[in-house]
Design a protein around this nucleic acid. Sequence first.
DNA 1: CCTTTTGTAAACACAC
DNA 2: GGTGTGTTTACAAAAG
Length: 680
Amino acid sequence: MMQESGTETKSNGSAIQNGASGGNHLLECSLREVRSNGETPSVEIGAADLAHLQQQQALQVARQLLLQQQQQQQQQQQQVSGLKSPKRNEKQPALQVPVSVAMMTPQVITPQQMQQILQQQVLTPQQLQVLLQQQQALMLQQQLQEFYKKQQEQLQLQLLQQQHAGKQPKEPQQQQVATQQLAFQQQLLQMQQLQQQHLLSLQRQGLLTIQPGQPTLPLQPLAQGMIPTELQQLWKEVTGSHTAEEAASNNHSSLDLSTTCVSSSAPSKTSLIINPHASTNGQLSVHTPKRESLSHEEHSHSHPLYGHGVCKWPGCEAVCEDFQSFLKHLNSEHALDDRSTAQCRVQMQVVQQLELQLAKDKERLQAMMTHLHVKSTEPKAAPQPLNLVSSVTLSKTASEASPQSLPHTPTTPTAPITPVTQGPSVITTTSMHNVGPIRRRYSDKYNVPISSADIAQNQEFYKNAEVRPPFTYASLIRQAILESPEKQLTLNEIYNWFTRMFAYFRRNAATWKNAVRHNLSLHKCFVRVENVKGAVWTVDELEFQKRRPQKISGNPSLIKNIQTSHTYCTPLNAALQASMAENSIPLYTTASMGNPTLGNLATVMREELNGAMEHTNSNGSDSSPGRSPMQAMHPVHVKEEPLDPDENEGPLSLVTTANHSPDFDHDRDYEDEPVNEDIE
DNA sequence: CCTTTTGTAAACACAC
DNA sequence: GGTGTGTTTACAAAAG
């Protein structure tokens, strides 16, 4: 069991990187971006940007082909020079696209598929245009192939001539070809860089947004072999006759799918669901000023970060009277900096976590339906969020812990969700999953749940979502003990608290239980007290306070924000913010704060924080050693013994819901069984 | 590079 | 002998 958990951790880590076999990493990454857009509508990229991406991919494909050609040339040279490897050449004919490329490459659409697309009328003209552009990119790719084919033929001819001529040196020709290829490669690279810069600038402007729950235009699944001319013809027909209908039926189609997505063709269908927003600015790289201004206008109606005159950037809510001022605000307040990057990252992680959770719940639902003989080919490729409304009742009651008020987003239930790398090295997600060892100072790994989704739902979130809580075992153990009426717990009761409060601890029991015992023994702050019935564990608070020379690791600006924001935040809120900052979690301010349902986790968070800001408070007069930063920040509210969660939460006076969750009323001991069934 | 903190794994002892 | 509890050691990762 322990080994299982161990290997699970490791394999999950590596699985992220092993998405496809070999080949061009850049290609894989960018393709995966778009692909994941199709399957998991977590990241919204404007269609124009998407088109850029696709073009970029085409270029990368071209590069891949180039490399392939070079390899083949090398092989042929080897042949010429006597190092024959006929088998290899048989297996790799001159024009064969490498498997990894073929698998990942957007391919030309068959007429049938195109017809299907048109009949289903799920694409707006803009989307079709994007599609068309993609096809054109593929045409370019084909032309490139042709080019290299000819080039290679030429080379072969030359080599043959050399063979026949015998002693002629072959360097010149090779060099010539190599030079040509090099020049071309450089051109490609330049174009690529330009596009990356464009993406970057889009991100800086906030136009390249990341948002949960909104599918984007996935073009990847539309695969395989349609002749571009046919497509263009189709396109003409389409733009002539279907435009209005499609525009009108576009939303309907996604809605309909959302409620009827049970057929086996669901994947392809859902993959065609278009984000209305993406379609509004579905321009391609053919950027005319007109179009940009148009898309700007359209943005004002549908920009996901702008609504009701308010900036919807997580935690912002700045009032912007019109779209222009919003853009201004976006550029000034949410420029590309550490903070925005971190916020983006968190948003991504939120989405991915939700996707993960959804995937699991869907699997459960599938199993349940199978068990109950309900005939349904459960949408493997994800229904729209809307349609979950119809199924949520079932999944909620039946699955043991389904996140209730959390937005559901489609995802692929199988493979680990790939990190969505956003743009060129601007935002990167490292290990996104809640597996692997907690490293408390691991700033960007465990900030998943405490975030923009709704910070007030932390407790419920952890109860339901299998998210690793970003707290140390010691803090959690302490919290468990302090929550108990007697401020003492047996080991088993501590176990139960863990499983009750955190869905995460309902699996891998052997691992974390061992860790709990280890922590109990290791830390002086946990005192074992012999009892009549046995032994109970208590907390030596002094010792606990001693053991924390931790510092905040992260963005100093965040810390500054935290320190300055306490004027209007309760101690708890400040603690939450600080705790978030400790995990590089962006500062979410008043709107999402102050919910009395925050629960006792806030205490854990604060204690996690205790001392964490000691060093960052060095400019303050209040930060004497031994005094927690919370005390430094709120000397009035926080007492020297911030033990009782019911007392020290200031105005918020947390509701203790820990022992009243309907799901966990009984001290059920979660053992290893769910581990096995849940292993991804 | 060293130290500290934390998490994980595992071996071992002991009691029931 | 199996299981739960508790202790201890070793190691790795992350961060200062």
